[in-house]
Design a protein around this nucleic acid. Structure first.
Lengths: 193, 193, 193, 193
DNA sequence: GATGAATGAGGCTTCATTCAT
DNA sequence: CATGAATGAAGCCTCATTCAT
């Protein structure tokens, strides 16, 4: 799925190894310095020339997109698991949002490019996000039909809510409770009618 | 008010003028390019050397803090107005949060440094934020006592919620509805109990 | 004709096809972007790896030299045509120089490598140029003997004059008249004796 | 003339020294490697950071323009000298063109940016060139009126002729005679009417 | 105090060429 | 032979910040 299947030929062994190594390195760099870690740093730490990095990943987004794919697959699996558990629609949505939250917290600062991806047509991340918004919509609609979720809420809003929550948590020294507090706010609001 | 009173001596007239002019310029630059506009640009547009800029405002945050003070005062006035209107405590909280939202949207990208300020002990913005969190707490507690707001919610969380909402809106092409959608989520949540 | 005959073995069919296709592509690229178009671009657009490109054409010059061969043949034909027309020697020279000018303007920026080729012993283009200089010399000598061209002028100088004229025309926005103006200067000079 | 007189304040001593040193270095680098020598190299060899270089000379052209100014002044002096000598108009033109030729041969490859400057409105070099074209026009018109120069020739063409001649001479190993040969061609042409 | 010159690390990217597969 | 991955030097430029004047 990740390899360029367009060429019809299997990628060379060394290239595959390099690519994998770059990804590992990028993961470390992103985890350590956040997603703004420089391309040059990644290349250097991966022991390859910048050219090699650019060959595999012409943009930072493409690198990020690739890095997220493993997690994407996990998330997708989680989605199917939730569906098959036949939970209350609102519990299902709740769990899906939790899963999304885990996914976004993969790297420090990840919410930033994701937010940007949502405003662009071009980014490699856009498609990923769109997919997850669609999934959110499905869970949400089910919950709405079952009377467990407010009408007027859109999947896109919930997705952005998850991003925003992650963004808040990314503050250098945010205490852990912050994310939960916000998530809970999004869930139940602060007002009592 | 923000002059370094430590020296015990009144600032020179030209210094005072410079300071004022820098603030005006910074306001324009931040309004136009967002808060990431380069310090050099501000200095240049203000017609002063970068050294002068740094003398008055040793960090970008201190500049920002100063810049927000006018708006802080407006916000403070708003706070008092709300208090004097003797509204339902939850309506009061609601209006306060709206006022905060307006305050944060003063400049593009302002939510970023504010979030950071909350995780640091040092920033010039921290104090400002703390003050508003305290105010939020007061409104919130009143609402909680009156049974109009959930217990377990903290003023800090609501404040962060406001920041997060602003952050989402800062996405290049965020449609206007996004901010309202998120604000409404924070208010009422998505779940129906 | 340009195949490396050193191996004594006929080139493989696919190699021949590749070579031809590279040439076609290079022609297009050079025509569109000028002769500084990157080797990688040519390889990519030709659908071959850079290695293949380099196998066939170890230097950019060798590629150019090969590319010019078709035009070389046209130019050679033109030369014979001029000779057979039995014109005034100076008219003949004049037409020959015009033909050369057309030849040099085949690609944007072609004059550059040609000029360099003239200062090297090694380049694949050198031989081509030498041939044309020799031809120029012949036309020139005939004209000189007939009293239609100044003595003291060398074929090499006229050839360089043609290159120089082309170089001037390659300026981004050179108006068309520039080339003619220079050519006319070279022909008649600016001075009236 | 070269200092930014706009500020009304004398440049700082260290800045002036730096600027001068950069110019010296650039002169050497350009003389050695031609005008394509990289900005970074110049900065490094001058012992300053790239930022400093860019502060003084925001573009390569501005650097070049400055570098040429000394020579510009010499050329201007030469122009006046020629005028005051009250020579035949065509001799005067001839001497002026020679002086121009010397000026262009200041650095290897200088003709290139000059040619480009002629096709742009913006370059720092454009003005310089325009000035010299105007001067050429004056000499040329005088010669034309006196019957010593062909009508139909424009100053711009002669200027470009000079550039082209220099360009030809810049070939790595061009023998010295080449430039003279071309200059002579431009002067008298190859044809005898 | 004001100035603005200097710093210089650091970011981005391209491309001719080689060589393992 | 063809491939295309890898190289990595080299170019470009910006900007927060310091410090001599």
């Amino acid at each position: 799925m990740a390899q360029d299947t367009s060429s019809g030929r299997a990628p060379r062994a060394d290239a595959r190894k390099n690519r994998a190594h770059i990804l590992e390195t990028a993961e470390k760099v992103f985890a350590a310095n956040g997603v703004t870690g420089s391309m040059d740093t990644i290349a250097k730490r991966a022991g390859v020339g910048p050219g090699t990095l650019y060959r595999h990943f012409p943009t930072r987004e493409s690198l990020l997109a690739e890095l997220l794919q493993t997690r994407d697959r996990e998330l997708e699996a989680k989605r199917q698991a939730i569906e098959q558990e036949r939970l209350d629609p609102d519990t299902a949505l709740s769990e899906w949002l939790d899963a999304l939250a885990v996914w976004v917290s993969a790297f420090d600062g990840l919410s930033e490019p994701l937010r940007e991806a949502l405003s662009e047509r071009t980014s490699a991340l856009t498609i990923t996000c769109q997919g997850f918004i669609t999934s959110t919509d499905k869970f949400l609609e089910a919950a709405q039909e079952a009377g467990g979720a407010r009408s007027g809420v859109r999947g896109r809003d919930l997705f952005l809510g998850v991003l925003a929550t992650a963004w808040v948590s990314n503050a250098a020294m945010a205490d852990k409770s912050t994310a939960t507090a916000l998530a809970s706010l999004l869930r139940s609001g602060w007002v009592i009618d």
